[in-house]
């Protein structure tokens, strides 16, 4: 059964319907996939500059806004130099 239990207290990447990418520690969730994210940072991708990381703190994100929750491989994530990454930001997702 697909459950978020395995991600609790792990660093995750959240992608929201408006295209935002947020990383943080998943402190909790519920049946509607509402998520509590602590120590969260928004990663703003751009083609011209490196990734901008905006610290956001403690977040409660509504489940219906979440498109994807991915467990971060922390070692791999640490090894990446964000200032070298160039990428197009994800556009808002429309149904």
């Amino acid at each position: 059964m697909a459950t978020l239990q395995g991600y609790v207290d792990h660093r995750v990447l959240l992608i929201l319907q408006d295209g935002r990418a947020i990383v943080g520690v998943m402190a909790g969730y519920d049946q509607k996939s509402n998520v509590v994210l602590s120590d969260s940072k928004e990663r703003v991708y751009s083609v011209e500059e490196g990734v901008e990381e905006i610290p956001l703190g403690l977040y409660l994100v509504k489940g219906d806004q979440i498109v994807l929750i991915g467990e971060l491989d922390e070692a791999l994530d640490q090894s990446v130099d964000l200032s070298t990454i160039r990428a197009e930001p994800i556009p808002p997702i429309h149904y």
Partner: peptide, 14 residues
């Protein structure tokens, strides 16, 4: 509630 995207709360709350 259905119109909320997210809420930001004080870090100390956790």
């Amino acid at each position: 509630g259905s119109t909320i995207k997210y809420l930001r709360v004080p870090d100390t709350l956790l």
